[in-house]
Nucleic acid binder design. Structure first.
Lengths: 119, 119
DNA sequence: GCGGATATATCTGTTACAGATATATCTTGA
DNA sequence: TCAAGATATATCTGTAACAGATATATCCGC
């Protein structure tokens, strides 16, 4: 039980919007719309927040210290309007704990035969 | 894609409180505090909403048609103050779809190596 | 240079949640 | 039997998140 763990635990459960954004940033730094594209691709278009949700949530995540603004990757030949973000240690830990929480929920649901509806 | 499916899909994503309550009712009818006890047992005490969340959410679920009030089970020798609830078909479907959604999320998280202990 | 796409930002109404508070009834033990 | 504590449900209020609409500026292809 490190201090980081305690701090992250207090943030649970994460809202779907928050979790999706953290997930998108888990493997690489991305800018706002890049985050949205990652969500869209990985969920087959099912998850597509409007700009209000996206940028509002990013702002709150910055304030809460779950993400940081990151240096722009690559040669620098990309759109200068873009702002890139990266997970902080706290953000990664929170996403990790939330993942554990979801795994627990999923196990419960499966125990109760709730997956793949049979009716 | 039945009409029931469409209707249920519009309710996603379910909030944690809603999903927990539906999960608790998935295997048997329960009354308010019975729901809370089930959540508490199955999560090892991590999930324990206050009464405001519990009864407020139950009320909304009734209005939305995800649960119904059920006949009291057993001989009838239990506390008459209790109100028992049961999943409607819509409620079961919504819980099932939400479970699928969580499974998808979990798979994404695992692809990105975000889970710490695989149980 | 013009038009459409890209990118970020803000504003507002609605809703859910958390915590506190309230009320009534049941059960247990002295 | 009667008091005390546990059980059970209900409501009220402040806070925060989200969704949708709107806004603004800039990039890129033609």
């Amino acid at each position: 039980m490190t201090k980081l763990d305690d701090q992250a635990r207090r943030l649970l459960p994460l809202t779907p919007a928050v979790y999706h954004i953290l997930l998108a940033l888990a493997d690489e730094d991305r800018h706002g719309l890049g985050i949205m594209r990652d969500m869209e691709e990985r969920t087959g278009g099912k998850v597509m927040p409007g700009p209000g949700t996206l940028y509002g949530t990013i702002k709150r995540l910055l304030e809460a210290g779950l993400i940081n603004e990151a240096r722009r990757p690559g040669g620098g030949r990309d759109d200068p309007r873009r702002r890139y973000y990266r997970l902080t240690r706290l953000g990664r830990r929170a996403a990790s704990l939330e993942t554990d929480r979801l795994a627990t929920l999923l196990r419960i649901a499966q125990d109760k035969h709730l997956q793949r509806d049979t009716r």
